[in-house]
Design a protein around this nucleic acid. Sequence first.
DNA 1: GTCTATAGAAAGATAGAC
DNA 2: GTCTATCTTTCTATAGAC
Lengths: 187, 187
Amino acid sequence: MAWKEQHKHNTRQKILRSAAKLFTKQGFDYVGINDVMKDAGLTRGAFYAHFNSKSELYAEAIIAAAIQTGDQLNPDNPKAPSLDQLVQFYLSMEHRQGKHFRCPLAFLATDITQRDDQVRDAYTSVFKGFLKHLTAHLQRRNGDIDRARIMQVAVMMIGGLAVSRALNDDELAKNLLTSCHKNLLDH
Amino acid sequence: MAWKEQHKHNTRQKILRSAAKLFTKQGFDYVGINDVMKDAGLTRGAFYAHFNSKSELYAEAIIAAAIQTGDQLNPDNPKAPSLDQLVQFYLSMEHRQGKHFRCPLAFLATDITQRDDQVRDAYTSVFKGFLKHLTAHLQRRNGDIDRARIMQVAVMMIGGLAVSRALNDDELAKNLLTSCHKNLLDH
DNA sequence: GTCTATAGAAAGATAGAC
DNA sequence: GTCTATCTTTCTATAGAC
């Protein structure tokens, strides 16, 4: 019966991939369970064989979105980009548009404040992982580093991207991203 | 007939005050027109005598929320707080909780990305006003100042508050706010 | 301009067949 | 486990009386 469990696991992962994709694009409220299941190639009714609620799916999707990309950011991975490359992409107009990659920390920041503890714990856990990665990167480059400075870097990246996405003015958004990038290079 | 128009204007302002209060607290989706009208002491049906849609209300409420508090932040107002006082409150746990005051730039940042141009224009306009206020404050203190630095300050305030609100860990949130505050003092 | 009543649509969750 | 069908609730927006 192991292959049956494997199949269930695979289906669940497929649902999670679709959920991560759609939720980071549109947030919690504008994505229906129907949309997620359709994207995964299934129908509504099958959803509750895998998850207890939409909220549970959302929490797991945030983690999944972070894991999908966290590996690429891990400085122990030899294929991981340098911190400079990471920041350059993170604060790019391409990331702002979000066609290929959408960091849940920036794309869902204020969305999270309206959700239950399960979801907020997931977000908090992803943020802590982000701090860890930043710390490893910065220590490798600069030796020991102030924890306050790490948090400032995180805010400049996440906050800069989030605000730039809210602006309906591409020129201003671009200036904003460049300004944030500059701050990180100057230190 | 002038008193009638005055009455309509007053009612409209009352609706806008309620909308600003509720939308900044809960975002667009979790506030119904019914909630807003009830808070304003009216019923659903009366809404469309004042606004064409929920989206239009949202856009105007963002402006209203900014105006309500923008006067206090205007450095030409002798009762306005100093920049240090402003930053200290902005990046406080009290503001994070949002009981008495909620800056729409931080509380609604990612919410805005899902809305129409009317709403996004309103947000962008408020953000530009925020930059102007910051510029005036910083010039008064430090003389001419780099535009990039002003944007960094804005991101550190808005982004720091927004991210801290998403975290389900009060200690971490407090550290984050303090770290952002420190960055602004160091320059 | 404000009210009550309601139309019409969307979405979360469940039931039961296969 | 997955499907179709349905229950139930919620919400925007409109209609018509006063």
